[in-house]
């Protein structure tokens, strides 16, 4: 009954897509992810998880007040997060297109740390397609290794699914060698069913190794275990159907090491060990890295650490 009511206002195209890819058992998902928070990770396993999480971080700064200097210090942190030699480098830095060349200068060309750039009129995506593609082209030309695009949520919700996939396909083409991450902006999709449908829409046009990503981090609700789970299951079902492995990036709202470990547990239990690498799974986050380093230091020394030892804002108490 509820489903019928929910779907009453749906466009025919969206309803067809639901029939094709299946819908989501909302209560089941919530129950499933609630269990992830009860797992107990200790000692060696915890340390492994923390280090793996560091290697998956897309260290992000996406603010109007970003400067070349701020991006340079972010890059320094990405290359050398900690004096502890067991701590790996992060996967990537994530910046606005205008900052890509500054990031490239700071990182150099011979580095494992990749440069990701949000393009396509991030975060709203409300610009003409031509402008969005030009932005992608510029970011890639400046040295971006990865492009984070936003989908056209307006078109998706209006049922114009062909437009959504055509636009993603156009960005795929424009990217060239660069890896693509497709941001679904889950908080604006309004239901788990829509998140699953949008995931499939994106996965059908992107290449193996490209990402689907939860959010821009610019809206009220960001990555949660729930929508992460819906997307992971979509990736699993797509993989079982087609053999194409798509990668995943939750972003926004993941601030603590504890949360990061819970997300990793979700990956392990849904997709398996093959996805526990930074080629298949990433965290889009700015403050998460500091908390990971803090917990690693806690494991090393046995003493709880103060956040201000980890390049936290100077005013922290």
């Amino acid at each position: 009954m509820f489903r019928l009511l929910m779907n009453a206002g749906l466009s025919l195209s969206l309803r067809r897509l639901f029939d094709e890819v299946g819908t989501v058992d909302c209560v089941g998902i919530e129950e499933r992810v609630a269990k992830y928070t009860t797992r107990s990770l200790k000692k060696a396993a915890k340390l492994w998880g923390l280090r793996t999480a560091v290697s998956m971080v897309d260290l992000t700064t996406l603010e109007g007040k970003d400067t070349p200097g701020k991006v340079a210090s972010l890059c320094a942190k990405a290359l050398h997060p900690s004096d502890d030699p067991t701590v790996p480098q992060v996967a990537a830095v994530c910046v606005y297109p205008a900052m890509v060349r500054h990031a490239r200068r700071a990182l150099g060309s011979d580095t494992a740390v990749r440069i990701a750039s949000v393009a396509t009129a991030f975060p709203s995506g409300q610009a003409p397609l031509k402008t969005r593609l030009a932005e992608v082209r510029a970011a890639v030309a400046d040295g971006a290794d990865e492009i984070d695009m936003v989908i056209n949520r307006g078109a998706f919700l209006a049922g114009d699914l062909a437009e959504v996939s055509d636009e993603i396909a156009a960005v795929v083409q424009t990217c060239g060698q660069a890896t693509l991450k497709v941001i679904l902006e889950v908080s604006e999709l309004e239901s788990y069913d829509n998140i699953r449908a949008a995931s499939f829409l994106a996965m059908r046009v992107i290449r193996p190794g490209d990402f689907i990503k939860t959010s821009t981090g610019k809206t009220s609700l960001n990555a949660t275990l729930g929508n992460n789970q819906v997307m992971l299951e979509a990736i699993r079902d797509h993989y079982l159907d087609t053999g194409v492995a798509i990668s995943m990036k939750p972003a926004g709202g993941i601030r603590t090491a504890k949360q990061a470990l819970q997300f990793l547990i979700a990956v392990k239990e849904t997709l398996g060990d093959a996805w526990l690498t930074n080629e298949r799974y990433r965290f889009g986050a700015s403050s998460l890295l500091n908390d990971l380093l803090r917990q690693i230091e806690k494991e090393r020394t046995g003493a709880y650490q103060a956040p201000y030892y980890f390049s936290e804002a100077a005013e922290s108490y």
């Binding site: 020394t301 046995g302 003493a303 709880y304 650490q305 103060a306 956040p307 030892y309």
Partner: peptide, 8 residues
């Protein structure tokens, strides 16, 4: 012991 070592 935790009071003693907690750096915060």
């Amino acid at each position: 012991p935790t009071f003693a070592t907690h750096t915060h």
